[in-house]
Amino acid sequence: MKKLLKIMLLGCLSMSVHAEEAKLEKIQVPKDKPSIARGAEDWINNCLTCHTMKYVKYRDLLSLGIDKAKVDGWRGEASLDTPLTAQMPDAVAMATFAKLPPDLSLMAQARDGGPNYVYSYLIGYYVKPDGSVGNHIFAETKMPDPLGISSAANAAERADKQKTARSIVTFLTWAADPHAGERDTLGKYVIVYLVVLSALLYAVKKQIWSRLK
């Protein structure tokens, strides 16, 4: 029987079925507010021209500890409760790319690989032999290299752009699940509570069952 099991398990393991896909860079996404706030700034500088984030409002940026004056500068006439809306009108976007740039509110959770995917995509631009710019992760992309990483002159410049990409991903990750920090903190209390409760319930069970002969 054991032999049979082993053969079957090996059979399962040896099946290679995954289509060849570009390897994603793995990154650690910081969760502290200052990093997210820096990310918000990088995102606004690099992405807001074309992309909307309809579930995030200017007011939400204040909760990250970003200076009110700075937020006021970004929003201009718009109220604090306006979502972060692309500066480029839809008609122009359609004329330029033949499709609307996607909303980025949930982008960090909307692709296999999550933040790793977005990061790898942002730094995945390269110059093809024919001189045009391609992307390792998403070959059919219509977005022009936003950080200019394909034209980075040297390693230092490239590292700098990677840092920006990381920072943008930090903000996107927060935007996709803004209560993640609160969830983590609450979760720890809940687990401690439940462990203590279970220990007590076990003691109760032990005590009650000890009445049986």
Partner: peptide
């Protein structure tokens, strides 16, 4: 008693 203890483990 036994079910409640099991519930505690499940909830964790």
């Amino acid at each position: 008693a036994k079910d409640l203890y099991g519930l505690g483990i499940f909830l964790i």
